[in-house]
C-alpha cells in the first residue's frame, strides 16, 4: 500500500461529495455531499500521518478537527433546515435563493 492510493481514494470521496453538493436540490442531500467531501479529508490526513509524518501526531489532530467540522455542519444544517421549513415550508435550495447575487 502506498500513499498515492490513499490519496486517490480521498480524491474520489471528495469528488463524489462535490458532485452531490453541486447537483442536489434537497438541503439534506447537500449536507450528505459535504459529509462525503470531509470524509475524503479524513482519509487523506490519516494517510499523511502514516506515510509522511509518522513521528508526530499533528495529522491525527487534523482528523479530529475534520470530524468536529462534520458534526457542526450536520447540527447547523438540520437547524437551518428546520427553521426555513417552519417559516416558509421550503425544503429545496431552489426555493431559498433570496441571497442570490
Amino acid at each position: 500500500m502506498i500513499l498515492s492510493l490513499y490519496l486517490i481514494l480521498a480524491a474520489g470521496l471528495f469528488a463524489v461529495g462535490l458532485y452531490g453538493l453541486l447537483s442536489q436540490q434537497s438541503i439534506v442531500m447537500i449536507m450528505m455531499g459535504i459529509e462525503l467531501a470531509i470524509n475524503g479529508v479524513i482519509v487523506a490526513a490519516a494517510a499523511v500521518w502514516y506515510f509522511i509524518v509518522p513521528g508526530s501526531p499533528d495529522a491525527q489532530t487534523v482528523v479530529l478537527v475534520a470530524m468536529t467540522a462534520m458534526a457542526v455542519e450536520m447540527g447547523m444544517g438540520f437547524a437551518v433546515t428546520t427553521a426555513i421549513f417552519r417559516a416558509r415550508d421550503v425544503d429545496m435550495v431552489d426555493s431559498a435563493s433570496d441571497l442570490k447575487g
Binding site: 500513499l3 486517490i8 474520489g12 469528488a15 462535490l18 458532485y19 447537483s23 509522511i52 509524518v53
Partner: peptide, 27 residues
Amino acid sequence: STIVAAVVFVVLAVGATVTPWPHGGRR
C-alpha cells in the same frame, strides 16, 4: 456538476500520483 467533479477528481488524483511526496520520518 458531473464535469466539475470529474475534473477535480482527475486533478487531485494526478497531483497525488506525480507529487514527489517526502518519505516518512522516524516512526
